[in-house]
């Protein structure tokens, strides 16, 4: 398990996390290379199906980054994201993958360091949890699939 490098998908709102990621880069902050960032126009675009499919396609962990509560560019997108993440967590629990492999965080565009910190925190969480149950059984199949994406 020591050399387990989790695959983590971070769905990032364009207005906060995506810029925060840029800022983290400009500040030369180190954060784990396990994170694959996907830009969204708003965290309100979060779709339960897409979150689930991320796991299906080999993710060990997934998180959604939205603006601070009350600061959504589209007013309520981040609140909607929060509820959908909650629903997807329940489904993951039911399936037995575990809702703790999915999380929602809030930050602002100015929080470059926080972006790096979340990446470290979450990577550490997934590292402790180990590979997704899906990846344990189908390590070879999924690694091929994941390799194709890279």
């Amino acid at each position: 398990m020591q050399d387990f490098e989790p695959k983590i998908i971070a769905f990032c709102c364009f207005y906060c996390a995506y810029s925060a990621a840029d800022l983290a880069g400009s500040l030369r902050l180190q954060y784990p290379a396990n994170i694959r960032v996907i830009e969204m126009p708003c965290s309100g675009k979060t779709d339960v199906r897409v979150l689930l499919e991320a796991f299906e396609d080999g993710a060990d962990g997934v998180y959604v980054l939205g603006c601070m509560e009350g600061d959504c560019h589209f007013l309520k997108g981040n609140f909607r994201a929060k509820r959908r993440v909650h629903q997807a967590k329940k489904i993951l629990d039911e399936i037995g993958i575990g809702g703790e492999r999915l999380e929602m965080y809030n930050l602002s565009a100015a929080m470059g360091p926080r972006f790096a910190e979340i990446a470290r925190e979450f990577t550490e969480r997934i590292r402790k949890l180990g590979p997704s149950p899906l990846n344990k059984k189908y390590a070879s199949a999924n690694s091929t699939k994941a390799g194709e994406q890279e």
Partner: peptide
């Protein structure tokens, strides 16, 4: 969502 969840469950 249901289709994805069913596939995940069966994959597990």
């Amino acid at each position: 969502i249901l289709a994805a969840a069913l596939r995940l469950l069966r994959q597990k």
